[in-house]
C-alpha cells in the first residue's frame, strides 16, 4: 500500500529534480541518512546542486527470520551541503510478538571534497538524534536510556572506470554510538554507558549510470548483557529509475538479535525524490 502511494506520488509529480548527476544522492539508509541500506554515506540526499532544494520520501523494509523492520520518513537537502531527515522505525518482533518503535532525526553537513570532481573524497559529518517510543522492553533487558545521539564522519568517492571500465564508489564511515541494535534496544547499559567508535563501509560498482551493485559492512557494539549483538552485512542492487524514483533490493545478514541467531533476509527500499 505504501509502495503504491509512493509510486503514484512519484508518477504524479515528475517535476524536475535538481541538477546533480543521477545516483549521486545515493539511496536512503534505514536511519534516514543518504547512503546505502545500513550505512550513511558522505553524499547529500536527493539531487539538489548549488543553491537548489530537494525533498524526498522513503520506505525501507527488512525481513529476517524472526524480525522485520519497516522504516519510513521524509528528508530534505539544500545546496548539496545540508541534509535533514525524519524517520520512524518500526521493528516487529515476529516470533516473540509485539513491536518496538523509534524516531530518528538526522542532520548531515557536507564539509569538503566533491564525490565526482575532486581528488579528495567527499567528506561529511552527521548526527542522528534517536528517541525510543516504547522503552519498556529495552529497559527490561538492561538498556539505560531511551534517547541518545549518534555522531559520524563519512568519506565517499567515485573512481571512474575503476572496475572493468565501470565506476566504483567507495565509502568509509566512522560512528560514535551508544545504541543497542541501532537504538531499537535503547542506549547504553547499566554496566557500560560509554560511546564506542564503530567502522562502517560500503563499496558499489555502477554497472550503468543508473544501476549499482554493492556490499556493506556495519560494525556493531555489544553492550547489553542479555544477548549478543553482531556486525551487520548486506549485498544490494540499486536501480535509479530516474531522478524521481529509486528502488533498492538486497540480502542482509544481521547476525544475532535478542538471542535469535543467524538473522538473514531481504532488504527492499523505495524512494521518491523531487
Amino acid at each position: 500500500m505504501k509502495y503504491a502511494a509512493l509510486l503514484l506520488l512519484a508518477l504524479a509529480l515528475p517535476v524536475q529534480a535538481g541538477s546533480k548527476i543521477i545516483a549521486t544522492g545515493g539511496a536512503t539508509s534505514i536511519e534516514g541518512a543518504a547512503g546505502g541500506g545500513i550505512v550513511p554515506w558522505a553524499v547529500i540526499n536527493g539531487y539538489a546542486s548549488s543553491e537548489q532544494w530537494s525533498v524526498l520520501a522513503f520506505n525501507n523494509n527488512v525481513g529476517v527470520d524472526d524480525f522485520s523492520l519497516h522504516t519510513y520518513g521524509v528528508a530534505a537537502s539544500y545546496n548539496n551541503e545540508w541534509e535533514l531527515s525524519f524517520t520512524r522505525q518500526q521493528f516487529d518482533l515476529d516470533t516473540l510478538g509485539g513491536d518496538l518503535q523509534q524516531d530518528v532525526i538526522g542532520l548531515k553537513y557536507h564539509i569538503a571534497g566533491e564525490l565526482l570532481y575532486s581528488q579528495l573524497p567527499q567528506l561529511s559529518a552527521g548526527i542522528q538524534y534517536k528517541k525510543h517510543r516504547n522503552f519498556a522492553l529495552p529497559s527490561a533487558v538492561g538498556a539505560k536510556d531511551d534517547s541518545d545521539i549518534d555522531y559520524y564522519l563519512a568519506a565517499s568517492k567515485v573512481y571512474f572506470a575503476a572496475v572493468a571500465g565501470r565506476n566504483l564508489l567507495l565509502n568509509a564511515t566512522l560512528r560514535a554510538s551508544r545504541a543497542n541494535q541501532i537504538g531499537l534496544l535503547g542506549f547504553g547499559s547499566h554496566s557500560d554507558n560509554s560511546y564506542q567508535w564503530l567502522v562502517e563501509s560500503s563499496a558499489a560498482v555502477l554497472l550503468t549510470p543508473q544501476l549499482a551493485v554493492g556490499v556493506e559492512f556495519r560494525q556493531k557494539p555489544n553492550q547489553l548483557d542479555f544477548a549478543d549483538e553482531q556486525h551487520w552485512r548486506d549485498i544490494f542492487a540499486a536501480w535509479f529509475i530516474n531522478k524521481n524514483f529509486s528502488l533498492v533490493g538486497g540480502y542482509v545478514d544481521l547476525g544475532r538479535i535478542a538471542g535469535f541467531s543467524e538473522q538473514q533476509g531481504y532488504y527492499l527500499a523505495l524512494e521518491a525524490t523531487w
Binding site: 541538477s19 548527476i21 543553491e51 537548489q52 571512474f160 572506470a161 571500465g165 565501470r166 565506476n167 549510470p209
Partner: peptide, 30 residues
C-alpha cells in the same frame, strides 16, 4: 555554479549514451 557544471556533465552523459559509446570509454572520458 556547481549546478551548471552538473547540468553539463549530465548532458555529456546523455549524448554519450545516445551515441552508444562503450561504457568504459564514457567513464574514461568522464
Amino acid at each position: 555554479s556547481q549546478a551548471d557544471f552538473d547540468n553539463l556533465v549530465t548532458h555529456l552523459m546523455t549524448v554519450m549514451q545516445r551515441q552508444k559509446i562503450d561504457i568504459k570509454a564514457q567513464n574514461q572520458l568522464l
